[in-house]
Amino acid sequence: MKRYAALIGLSEDGKADYRKLHAAVWPAVLAQISASNIRNYSIFLKEPENLLFSYFEYHGSDYAGDMAKMAADPTTQDWWALNMPLQRPLDTRSDGEWWADMTEIFHHA
C-alpha cells in the first residue's frame, strides 16, 4: 500500500458546484475509483484560501496502469469535465500534473 496526497485550488465561483457534485458522486465514478485499487480516498477543503487537499491509499501493483484505465473511462472523463473548470491548478505544480503531488515527510501508524 502506498499513500498519495495532492493539492489544487478551487475557484470561489465554483465552490458551491464542487461541493454539490461531491455530495453525490456518481456511482460509476466511485466504482472506477475502487476498480483502480484506490481506498480511503478523501478530499478536504481549506477556506478561505479555497485549497483542496486529496488523500488516498493505493493497494494495487501497477499504479500507472490503473491510473491510465481510470483516465480512459468515459464516465470518469465526463466527471472530470464537470470538475476541472472549477479547479485552479497551482502555478508550482510539475509538468503534466493537474493536482500538485505532495511528498510525505511524516507518518505515524
Rank of each mutant, 00 (worst) to 15 (best):
W80M: 15
I38R: 03
M84K: 13
P89F: 03
G65C: 09
N37T: 02
R3D: 11
V25Q: 05
H108A: 04
A109Y: 11
W80Q: 13
Q32V: 10
D17L: 09
A72V: 05
K2M: 07
W98M: 10
W99T: 01
F44S: 07
L21K: 03
K69H: 13
N40A: 10
N40P: 01
D78F: 02
K46F: 06
P85G: 06
D101S: 14
I33P: 00
A64K: 11
W26L: 08
G65Q: 09
A5Q: 10
A23L: 05
E97D: 06
L10C: 10
A24W: 02
G60R: 07
T92E: 11
H107I: 06
L7A: 02
D66H: 14
S54R: 05
G14F: 07
R93Q: 12
D73V: 09
F53W: 15
S36T: 12
D95N: 08
L10V: 13
N83G: 01
G96K: 04
Y55D: 05
P89D: 06
A68V: 02
S34H: 12
L10T: 04
M84E: 14
A68E: 15
L21A: 08
K46N: 07
L52A: 14
K20T: 14
D66S: 08
S11K: 12
M84A: 13
E12K: 14
I43L: 12
H22C: 03
A6G: 15
L52H: 08
D95C: 01
S54D: 14
S11V: 01
G9E: 05
P74I: 13
L51P: 01
G65A: 09
S61C: 01
L82S: 09
D91I: 01
P48V: 05
I43W: 07
D13E: 14
G9W: 05
T92V: 10
N40S: 11
L51M: 10
S94F: 04
I43C: 04
H59L: 09
M1E: 11
R88A: 02
L7H: 02
P74Y: 10
D101C: 00
L7I: 09
D66G: 07
A24H: 11
N83R: 08
Y55K: 02
M102P: 00
N37R: 13
A100H: 06
T103F: 00
N83Y: 00
D78P: 00
P48W: 07
T103D: 08
L52R: 06
D17S: 10
